[in-house]
Design a protein around this nucleic acid. Sequence first.
RNA 1: CGGGAUGUAGCGCAGCUUGGUCAGCGCGCAGCGUUCGGGACGCUGAGGUCGGCGGUUCGAAUCCGCCCAUCCCGACCA
Length: 412
Amino acid sequence: MKFSNYFIPTLKEAPSEAEIASHKLLLRAAMIRKEAAGVYSFLPLGKRVLAKVEQIVREEMDRIGSQEILLSILQPSSLWEKSGRWQAYGPEMMRLSDRSDREFALGPTHEEMITELVRNNVRSYRDLPFTLYQIGTKFRDEIRPRFGLMRGREFIMKDAYSFHADTDSLNKTYKDMSGAYGKIVERCGLKYRHVEADSGLIGGEVSEEFMVLASSGEDMIIFCGACGYAANIEQAKEGDNCPRCSGSTETTRGIEIGHIFQLGTKYSEAMGATYIDKGGKSLPIVMGCYGIGVTRLMAAAVEQNNDEKGIIWPRNLSPFVVSIIQLDMESKELTKMADKVYELLSKAGIETIYDDRQERPGVKFADSDLIGFPYQVVIGKKAASQGKVELKTRANQKVELVNLDELIKHIS
RNA sequence: CGGGAUGUAGCGCAGCUUGGUCAGCGCGCAGCGUUCGGGACGCUGAGGUCGGCGGUUCGAAUCCGCCCAUCCCGACCA
């Protein structure tokens, strides 16, 4: 991919409306643009990052046997009246009417819809258990949208729902999910903690949050160095000692990017989603639900990985792994070498963007640093005269001279 | 929704107190020239309903009122 052909309108200065690092940098690095408060569009680079996150989520969901679906965003009010949440959800739900004055919500979540789907299609214990997930846009008319992607009114979420005949089965899936969530955050290259949590309005008995550690996080996490216990500050109360082993605790800040719940039968009872058990008895289906804020995860990754120059993408999330910086576009030899390097990397399956713009070196360095590609391959006459290129690692700005035939090895 | 603040060119800002060459500056953008290893320099040029509506006044970016938008702090949430 050539930089000159790509739509990457980077900004030298951050728009004044942006306050925190991820918001400023995602704007400056041409990843996102604001459309309204809490509503953002994704530009090509941002879309690539999103796709990376989604793919990791997808693979880990599939790995534990969860099946991908796509529920409609437009949801008829009748479903919400059934669960009682048409009233209860309040102004946070975006509502609209069609031409015949039928009312709809732009889905803030999909418990009602999925429960209805399952209610209509599951009869027997033999049909259970199973887990469904989707990755899609949610709408919540937040009281106060904030910090760019961190708290939007339109955002992308992965939501999964599991259906069981009994709580043992739910427990197993819940555990699988917890494991999958850990893997997802790890594969995204982020430091995190999972904590006991309050299940809030969604309801249910057990719940756990996944927090990406970042000093700008909205949530305080309290954790015990001794036994590993960790909890949201509200859960842990004000105590200085671990409620489990009474060791001393520390606090840190985090961004909640995932939350998993054991719902039990709250929605299935409200909506009449039942199955027939072995004895022929009709029972409410036992449910779990599991969310990941995909767009928020993207912002959290930037919060955790940036410096004065810009973003430092974890490799697995970066829109491209390598940017080739050709320092003198007038030079035929250097261009030839850059073409060669591009081909080499592409053939090796390394996503590469080639900065072929007619710009001064400083501009190219600055943009690459800002956007945050993990590696820069700098092609200049000094190294080229020895048949080498410079490999710069974004995270520490370290540069090493490498031969072309060793380049792949250094990046892999 | 309560508290605070902002809205002037694509982005960052000055001008407002003391109405009248106040429509400006930096960056970016276009053209030409010189440059070319960390966001170059010179010249030329394009670009603005001063958030909107109404009012005061001979005259409003500037004063007054209402509205809208955006941001920050608080109560809710992935």
